[in-house]
Amino acid sequence: MTAKQFTSVWLREPRKPTSPGRSREEIVRATLDLLDAEGLAGLSMRKLGAKLKAGATSLYWYVANKDELLELAYDAIWGELSTPVPEDAHWREVASVLAHSMRQVILRHPWSADLIGRVPAFGPNALAFTERMCRAFKTAGFRGLDIDYANATLTAYVFGYTIPEVAWNSSVGHDYDLDEMRESVKRAAEGHLELMERLGAADHDEDPQVMREVGFDFGLVSVLDGLERRLGT
Rank of each mutant, 00 (worst) to 15 (best):
P124D: 04
S112V: 15
A3P: 00
W111E: 10
P120F: 04
G39Q: 07
D203S: 09
A201H: 06
D114N: 13
P110I: 02
G21Q: 04
T57M: 07
L34D: 05
R143Q: 09
E13M: 02
E197W: 00
D203N: 15
T233R: 13
T83A: 11
D67P: 00
G49C: 11
T7Y: 00
L145W: 04
L193G: 12
R212H: 02
Y176V: 05
H204E: 14
L220Q: 07
G144F: 13
G39E: 09
E68H: 12
K53E: 14
F159K: 11
L227T: 10
Y176G: 08
L115T: 09
K53G: 12
Q209E: 15
Y60G: 03
E183R: 12
R15Q: 06
S222L: 00
V185Y: 01
L231N: 09
F216M: 03
L70I: 12
P14S: 01
F137G: 12
V221T: 12
L40G: 14
L115D: 08
W78V: 04
T233G: 14
V9P: 00
V221G: 04
E206I: 05
L72I: 03
G117F: 06
S82H: 14
V158T: 12
P124H: 03
E68G: 11
A54G: 05
T139R: 07
F129P: 06
L34A: 10
T233M: 08
A140G: 07
T233F: 03
L70S: 11
K66H: 10
D148A: 04
I77F: 11
E165D: 03
H192S: 09
M45Y: 13
A126F: 00
G79D: 09
R24I: 13
G117Q: 04
G39C: 08
N151E: 08
R29K: 11
E25F: 03
F122Q: 11
G39L: 08
P14Y: 01
L195V: 07
F137C: 06
T162V: 02
A50R: 15
Q5M: 09
V166F: 14
M102F: 15
E194G: 03
W61C: 05
F122R: 06
L145N: 01
A150P: 03
W111V: 10
Y74W: 13
Y62M: 07
W78F: 15
E197C: 05
Q5A: 13
D205G: 15
L98C: 13
V94C: 15
A167V: 10
I106W: 13
L69I: 13
K138R: 13
L178D: 02
A126S: 15
G21N: 06
E213L: 01
R212T: 02
